[in-house]
């Protein structure tokens, strides 16, 4: 992770060397994606478990008002995808299914907060990175934010996928077009005598 972070700061000393090498561009692009993936996994899981533990305290000793949640079993119902759906949408529907299975109850909210926090954390670091990395970070951060926010409103694979793609493109364009780290130096610090 430390090496990844270090690799994300090549533009501090001027133009990024990846401007002249397509192989390096690809590497920087992948490094951006990998960093955010790791961060979102880490924070998503951490907060999911944290909220589950907190929820246990919150509902201590209460008998459930609804039918209880249970583990995954053979009886698990699967949604039927229409035959005409593209394989990508079917794949996304499967991903949604496993995501929703993995985070039931309070952990659903926790994972959502974790994933969005990871996206913002990485966007905060993005101005230090080169254009290619800003593009990849914007793409994945937008996808994560759009995906999780739309999941609060709709459960349809098409709608969630649409929001994910739209947010990914919007963030990617914004991050790629933004100038990165400001050229104006930070205000010098003065100490109280």
């Amino acid at each position: 992770m430390r090496e990844l972070l270090k690799a994300l700061e090549p533009s501090n000393s001027g133009i990024c060397p990846c401007a002249a090498s397509s192989e390096l561009k690809l590497r920087h692009f992948a490094q951006g994606l990998l960093l955010l993936t790791l961060r979102s996994l880490l924070l998503g899981l951490l907060l999911a478990y944290l909220l589950s533990v907190i929820d246990w305290f919150r509902t201590l000793g209460m008998s459930p008002l609804y039918l209880p949640f249970s583990g995954i079993g053979q009886y698990q119902p699967r949604l039927e995808s229409a035959a005409a759906q593209p394989a990508f949408v079917k794949g996304f529907e499967n991903f949604l299914f496993y995501f929703n299975c993995a985070f039931p109850g309070a952990s659903r909210l926790g994972s959502g907060i974790g994933v969005i926090a990871a996206a913002f954390w990485t966007l905060h670091d993005a101005p230090k990175s080169c254009k290619v990395q800003r593009l990849s970070l914007g793409l994945l951060a937008g996808a994560l934010i759009g995906f999780r926010l739309m999941l609060m409103i709709s459960s349809s694979a098409f709608t969630v996928l649409g929001a994910t793609v739209f947010a990914a493109l919007a963030f990617a364009v914004y991050m790629a077009l933004s100038s990165g780290k400001s050229e104006i130096p930070r205000l010098p610090l003065v100490e109280i005598d």
Binding site: F69, S70, G71, Q76, L79, F97, N100, P104, L151
Partner: peptide, 11 residues
């Protein structure tokens, strides 16, 4: 369908 998608483990 929507409920199944949101909470696949809900009995």
């Amino acid at each position: 369908r929507s409920a199944n998608r949101l909470a696949p483990l809900d009995e």
